[in-house]
């Protein structure tokens, strides 16, 4: 059989990327351009009026203390969720990486939260944290004699959505950490043990560095999860409240678009979000790989 010569015609490479370009254009680039255009207008509900307003939407956003607070809150939320979540997941994956009887059942149990929808996850947490009939408060009351106002106090509501989000993403992280752990050859551990390293040293000096490609990938994926997918959890559990305590950027965007009917303002927020994600991704690809060890 004769091998295909892909350089035979200048158009061949273009033809090859054409299908993915069509899809990207239709579902990514075109909506993005639309958002940018929309963000320059003030649109009346039902599209009855459309008034060009230049950068007014952006100016309004950045002069609005509610939006600035929301940006800061989201940054704190993302940082705590990612580092807390990755730490918990790493510990759990080391635990389920052992050769125990019925280990597959444990692994499945840890993965289940990822498989259920954010809406269901949020509802489960609402039940658990319910001040009247919730199990969490029941046990806290039994053990420490305290009643925590989980969803009615700003501070605790913020903690509650962090816990729920960490719990929700844990399964995904554990699967990847587990795959990473299992790809570390036993020989490395053996030689470390022969050299007299204890378990903590092995974990610190071998496991963590050799897992760094996985960790690096997970950090990026988690940023995307936490920024965009936590919407469902926030919507069900707190609706951004109480008193804006859990109003993160993605939720505020939703509210401005679908409750307050300000498409321009919402589009401006999505453009800002896009820029932020681009910056994060750029920094990670540019500098993030420095500490990453590939075997």
């Amino acid at each position: 059989m004769k091998e295909q010569d892909y350089d035979s015609h200048f158009s061949v490479p273009y033809l090859l990327i054409l299908p993915s370009m069509i899809i990207l254009t239709l579902f990514l680039y075109w909506p993005t351009i639309q958002s940018v255009i929309l963000s320059l207008y003030r649109t009346a509900p039902f599209g009855a009026r459309r008034i060009y307003s230049g950068f007014d939407n952006y100016i309004n956003l950045f002069t609005d203390p509610v939006y600035r607070a929301s940006l800061l809150r989201s940054a704190v939320f993302v940082l705590i969720t990612i580092f807390g979540g990755l730490a918990v997941s790493l510990i759990l994956s080391v635990l389920v990486n052992q050769k125990l009887k019925g280990i597959k059942i444990y692994r499945t149990i840890f993965f289940i939260p990822y498989a259920i929808s954010p809406t269901v996850a949020g509802s489960l947490w609402v039940f658990l944290l319910n001040p009247v009939a919730g199990h969490v408060n029941y046990f806290l009351d039994l053990l420490f004699n305290v009643q925590v106002p989980w969803l009615t106090n700003g501070f605790f509501a913020f903690i509650a959505i962090i816990i729920a989000t960490i719990w929700k993403n844990m399964g995904f992280n554990i699967i990847f950490f587990l795959a990473g752990l299992q790809s570390i050859p036993d020989s490395v551990y053996e030689s470390a043990r022969i050299d007299g390293a204890n378990s903590f040293q092995i974990f610190r000096k071998i496991t963590i560095p050799l897992l760094s490609p996985t960790t690096f990938y997970l950090i990026i994926m988690n940023i995307i999860f936490t920024v965009f997918q936590s919407f469902g959890i926030v919507d069900i559990m707190t609706q951004g409240g109480p008193a804006d305590a859990t109003n993160i950027v993605i939720y505020k965007l939703y509210r401005d678009m679908f409750v307050n009917f300000r498409p321009g303002l919402a589009a401006a927020q999505s453009v800002i979000l896009l820029i932020l994600v681009l910056i994060v991704t750029f920094f990670h690809f540019r500098f993030g790989s420095r500490g990453v060890h590939y075997q």
Binding site: P45, T152, N153, G154, G241, P242, A243, D244, R255, V259, N260, F261
Partner: peptide, 22 residues
């Protein structure tokens, strides 16, 4: 009120701020 759904949310936030003691 043209922006009544938004007004309702503003009121609810204000009540929450009060009850929290902010």
């Amino acid at each position: 009120i043209g922006t009544f759904p938004e007004v309702r949310q503003i009121v609810e936030e204000a009540v929450e701020k009060t009850l929290q003691g902010d």
